[in-house]
Amino acid sequence: MQSDTISYDNLDGFDSLNSLNGINSSDHRPLPKWLVDQKSGLTSIQPEEIHMKEDHSLKISSIVTLTFIILLLVFLTYYFNRKHKNQAS
């Protein structure tokens, strides 16, 4: 069975946890993993991280509107030109 403890060689950063558990640095006894996780907040459900997203909606809206206007202009020009031609003939 694997012991439910963490292993470490370097005591840097673990001193505060060691003192919490009453372990002398010379003992080199790993802390229970549940205590380390609980201390670091690993076992609690982490809140969802919110990231800012770039807003492209204005750009997309402008392109769509511009395209629509151009297409409408082309259609109307073609339509009226054709109508005018028919009337002239």
Partner: peptide
């Protein structure tokens, strides 16, 4: 896994 010795503190 137990708390032991001086590690039996209120905080732990």
């Amino acid at each position: 896994e137990p708390l032991l010795g001086k590690g039996i503190t209120e905080e732990n």
